[in-house]
Amino acid sequence: MSTPHIPPSSADSGRGDGSDADTPGALSPVRPEPPRHPRADGSGRPAGPAGRGKERSVASRLASATAGGAAQVVLILFGLLWLLPTAGLFVSSFRDARDISAGGWWTALTDASQWSVQNYSNLLGKSAFTDSIWTTVAITLPSTVLVVVVGAMAAYAFAWLDFPGRDWWFLLVVALLVVPIQVALIPVARLFNVLGIFETIPGVVLFHAAFGLPFAIFLLRNFFAEIPRELLEAARLDGAGEVRLFTRVVLPLGGPAIAALAIFQFMWVWNDLLVALIFASSSNPPMTVALQQEMRQFGANIDVLAPGAFISMLVPLAIFFAFQRQFVAGVMAGSVK
């Protein structure tokens, strides 16, 4: 488990990458002055004994330049290797069933006639699939809102309110961070049966919310606790009560952490298969389950599965590219789930 490193009340200025105006993503180099060049001779670095860098021999500079070239080649190869699988899915999703059985997706790279959006229009014409998109949305949005709201309320109480046994309760929450969801599948299925919400959307939402909460409370409490107490005391002197402090001071200042949490939870629920397999209605399933049901005839079904998988990836990918920083922060802090 790693402690989340999201600087309080500085949504866009922190993390030391402000100098890279062109790519201010969380994945860009964190160091203020990244070693942009293999010529690591120390020039221009204020730290370090002066003049020492000049002692480096020509041979060692040459060696590190060569190493830089080798690094480029290795990384290009790995980059291509990492892109290849997704490229295969992308290209396959535009080829009809006959082309798919006739040859590999790479043949389409030199044959424009194989490309068509027919698979997509077929798939989006099926109400079973479009319904599954809406089911996914109907599960994901409420789970995300619920976790953020309930988690923020509890985190606020743990950070700033006074009540007996507060530390012990928080330790319990931390202990629950790593509980595998597998432990809850059988008991909660039984409980939901009794309550009459087994195989319904509210059931799935509640399950996701409950298992999102330990991380939400942990992340937000640590963040809220770093809000300068003078701010809260000032508001208190102005006569604000517990609720006003929460909505007017804590929540607005908690923006960055709440964003990271919301994005993490959204992606987690959107991409979930296991919980949906058990707790969602099999006649009106979310996208992941709908696609999983098509896996049985994999070879004959690629023209359905490839565009379906790609459509299911669109929203997470869009969020990933739009909110790199928050997503990375959330993943780094919440990977224990």
């Binding site: 293999p38 396959s92 992941t288 696609l291 998988a309």
Partner: peptide
């Protein structure tokens, strides 16, 4: 640390984290 396009490279390598294991499974079945 040695290259200029490190952000692009990290994006490519980190991208699979954003997609579902189901989609990754379909990708690798292919």
């Amino acid at each position: 640390e040695r290259i200029r396009w490190s952000t692009a490279f990290k994006l490519v390598i980190f991208m699979p984290m954003a997609i579902s294991m189901l989609a990754a499974g379909i990708i690798f079945r292919l």
